[in-house]
Write a protein that binds this DNA or RNA. Structure first.
Length: 307
DNA sequence: AGCCAGGTTTAAT
DNA sequence: ATTAAACATGGC
């Protein structure tokens, strides 16, 4: 077992990050209980189980990471964990940008230290984007779990099975009917198989997009069948970790902005872009905090945020 | 029952 | 160039 610690940029609220999705039922590749996050990661072409927990506080954050087995490069694990948990995001900058916004400044107090999780790979962000298109988030998580159980490799730790997110290689050989049996739509099944094939045969190279601008990434990704603007922007945020990108079409975001800023009146995508644009380099966090507020308002019987 | 949910493509106008 | 229908399922 390899063990090391990471010092995220403060503030960093690991517990809140873990709790943000705990109301969503359904098996998943991300397992959290007893305050410990567990999942299988592909590192150095090997599957390893990673356990992450907080051993610090929100203002003096420290993460403890355990890796089983240890036959991988520690530095590679650390890079992946830093990316996934946004340890290098500096929320103090975001908080100073939004200090005059009546809604976001309240959310800052309620969600202090909350950072967004990112996917370990761009491929995973891409597949999740497809799964989440047009369905409730909880259903998308259920589909993700089914996909992992059927197509993901697994490893056993303390008599418990942990599933990796499926690889493009495996999904490229999946059968469309099998995916439909998991209750994906026929379209989503096609998208996932075709994209996986494209990655395997080299027509799609996700890693090569890392140095491109947001717009260049969007233009490239939206040429792929099944990836529209929303998905491309979602992938920019969730997978690439771009802080200045934003899925402005998002249904949940529209609902939140209409509720908190426009007294329930409908807002257009362009309204959203216009208003969140002023948060510049951190506009993804403005969107994320609003989405979280809306979600917490809907899942908590007592109102989370009153404006 | 019917519409919406962290949309996209395809096939009409 | 814009608009409508189809898509799978669960919750309200």
């Amino acid at each position: 077992m390899m063990k090391f610690t990471i010092d995220p940029i403060t503030p960093h609220n690991f517990e809140l990050m873990m709790n943000m999705y705990k109301d969503i039922k359904g098996e998943s590749v991300d397992i959290v209980y007893n305050g410990i996050y567990r999942r299988v990661l592909r590192i150095d072409n090997k599957n390893v189980l990673v356990l992450v927990q907080s051993v610090g506080t929100v203002t003096k954050p420290k993460l403890s990471v355990c890796v089983y087995p240890e036959s991988v490069t520690g530095k590679h694990v650390e890079e992946k964990i830093r990316h996934m948990f946004s340890t290098d995001v500096d929320l103090s900058v975001f908080y100073s940008i939004i200090k005059n916004d009546r809604v976001l400044s309240k959310l800052k107090d309620k969600l202090y230290g909350l950072k967004a999780r990112r996917t370990p790979s761009i491929f995973e962000a891409l597949i999740i984007a497809i799964l989440e298109q047009q369905v409730a988030l909880s259903f998308a998580v259920t589909l993700q779990g089914r996909l992992a159980r059927k197509y993901g490799e697994h490893l056993t730790f303390k008599r418990k099975k942990y599933y990796a997110f499926p690889t493009p290689e495996t999904l490229s050989e999946a059968n469309a009917q099998d995916l439909r049996n998991l209750q994906l739509s026929g379209r989503k099944a096609e998208y996932i198989i075709d994209i996986s094939k494209g990655i395997v045969n080299g027509e799609i190279n996700l890693e090569s997009l890392k140095n491109l601008s947001n717009d260049e990434v969007i233009n490239t990704l939206t040429e792929i069948r099944g990836i529209g603007k929303w998905s491309a922007e979602y992938i920019l945020v969730r997978g690439f970790g771009r802080l200045d990108a934003l899925p402005a079409d998002d249904a949940g975001l529209k609902r939140a902005i209409s509720k908190y800023y426009y007294n329930g009146k409908q807002v257009s995508t362009e309204d959203i872009r216009g208003m969140l644009n002023k948060y510049g380099e951190y506009k993804s966090y403005a969107a994320y905090y609003l989405l979280c507020a809306d979600r917490l308002n809907n899942t908590n019987s007592n109102k989370f945020l009153k404006i």
